[in-house]
Measured scan of single mutants.
Amino acid sequence: KELVSALYDYQEKSPREVTMKKGDILTLLNSTNKDWWKVEVNGRQGFVPAAYVKKL
Score class of each variant (00 low, 15 high):
residue 1 K to S: 11
residue 1 K to N: 12
residue 2 E to T: 14
residue 2 E to R: 13
residue 3 L to S: 08
residue 3 L to I: 10
residue 3 L to Y: 15
residue 3 L to V: 09
residue 3 L to M: 12
residue 3 L to P: 05
residue 4 V to E: 01
residue 4 V to I: 09
residue 4 V to M: 07
residue 5 S to F: 15
residue 6 A to R: 00
residue 7 L to A: 06
residue 7 L to Y: 05
residue 7 L to M: 10
residue 8 Y to A: 11
residue 9 D to A: 07
residue 9 D to V: 02
residue 9 D to K: 03
residue 10 Y to E: 01
residue 10 Y to K: 01
residue 11 Q to Y: 14
residue 12 E to V: 06
residue 12 E to W: 06
residue 12 E to L: 07
residue 12 E to I: 06
residue 13 K to I: 07
residue 14 S to N: 13
residue 14 S to Y: 07
residue 15 P to N: 11
residue 15 P to C: 11
residue 16 R to Y: 14
residue 16 R to I: 13
residue 17 E to C: 07
residue 17 E to M: 06
residue 17 E to L: 06
residue 17 E to Q: 12
residue 17 E to K: 04
residue 17 E to P: 04
residue 18 V to P: 01
residue 18 V to S: 02
residue 19 T to P: 07
residue 19 T to C: 05
residue 20 M to H: 01
residue 22 K to T: 08
residue 23 G to H: 06
residue 23 G to T: 02
residue 23 G to I: 01
residue 23 G to K: 03
residue 24 D to R: 02
residue 24 D to Q: 12
residue 24 D to Y: 04
residue 25 I to M: 08
residue 25 I to F: 06
residue 25 I to N: 04
residue 26 L to E: 00
residue 27 T to G: 06
residue 27 T to M: 12
residue 27 T to F: 12
residue 28 L to V: 09
residue 28 L to T: 02
residue 29 L to S: 02
residue 30 N to S: 13
residue 31 S to R: 09
residue 31 S to G: 11
residue 32 T to N: 12
residue 32 T to R: 10
residue 32 T to P: 04
residue 32 T to K: 11
residue 33 N to A: 09
residue 33 N to E: 11
residue 34 K to P: 14
residue 34 K to N: 12
residue 35 D to K: 13
residue 36 W to T: 02
residue 37 W to M: 04
residue 37 W to A: 05
residue 38 K to I: 15
residue 39 V to C: 04
residue 39 V to A: 01
residue 39 V to Q: 00
residue 41 V to D: 04
residue 41 V to T: 11
residue 41 V to L: 15
residue 41 V to P: 00
residue 42 N to H: 11
residue 42 N to F: 07
residue 44 R to I: 09
residue 44 R to K: 13
residue 45 Q to A: 12
residue 45 Q to R: 11
residue 45 Q to I: 15
residue 46 G to F: 07
residue 46 G to S: 02
residue 46 G to H: 02
residue 47 F to A: 03
residue 49 P to Q: 02
residue 50 A to C: 08
residue 50 A to W: 01
residue 50 A to M: 05
residue 50 A to K: 07
residue 51 A to Y: 11
residue 51 A to N: 13
residue 51 A to L: 10
residue 52 Y to W: 08
residue 53 V to E: 02
residue 53 V to F: 04
residue 53 V to G: 01
residue 54 K to G: 11
residue 54 K to T: 14
residue 55 K to R: 13
residue 55 K to S: 11
residue 56 L to D: 07
residue 56 L to F: 10
residue 56 L to E: 09
